[in-house]
Amino acid sequence: MNDVCVRLEGVSKRYPHFLLDNISLDLPVGSILGFIGANGAGKSTTIRILMGLVRQDSGSVQVLGHAMPAEQTAAKLDIGYVSEDMRLYGAATLAWHMNFVASIYPQWNQSYADTLVRRFDLKPQQKIKGLSHGQRVKAALLLALAREPRLLILDEPTTGLDPVARREVLAELMAVLADEHRTILFSSHNTLDVEQISDRIAFIDRGRIIALEEKEDLLDRWRRVRLVVPPTAVLPQLPGIVEVGGTERLPVLTTNRFDPAVVSLCQDRGATVQSVDSMTLEEIFVANVQSRRELQPA
């Protein structure tokens, strides 16, 4: 097995009103990729293609060394998948689901499953239809984690969870991250969750990957620079400016190629640098998407 867990090359999928366009993505073994996009951006379609549940029109997909969708059954033996739109059988109990999944996966870890039952405060004999949304998500996560998959694919798992349940789910995911051989793809439009657990970030918008890099590099590159510009001063052309906000006298520049030299350059031209602010992942995502949409309207 090479060091790449997931590889998508030039993957496209056309629907009547949506195009997943030429997606290329590598996910090294042991990495945690935060997959961020607005609703309808193509996250779930990409993930379904990864799982072999949707066949791409063109391009190739390799997951854990298996070509998808042709070898999906072999690949899915080592994948744990939890999706926001996945439901368990309401008429059956959690214990039944655990037995069912355990009968399929030879690597099922019952003691870990029991630990998760206690940690998530679940009752195995309770029917799924009697569980709250948070408990159902935790039950689905339990079923995915206890099979000890090499690849964990989480499609919006924290959507709709209350703060307590969200924290419990994220805490368990953080614990899972301790296994450095496990690869995780975490899709969400909640950037706070993604920022907490990911080491790589991919932004997807309108069916295209618009950014894919290490989280720290991404956070380092993006800055918001607040300036005071006197009437006599003229700002120089600064690199990587994606957005200019504020007013003419008090501009706020958003750059995706921040360099400390920019500060002295502005000062040399008579401007005062009020602050250079780091940006949250959400701010970076929104600025990135908006600037690209301005350049390429739908």
Partner: peptide, 12 residues
């Protein structure tokens, strides 16, 4: 009832 996603996530 969206249980198809659960079944199809298994090696099926």
């Amino acid at each position: 009832e969206q249980t198809l996603a659960f079944i199809m996530s298994l090696p099926v």
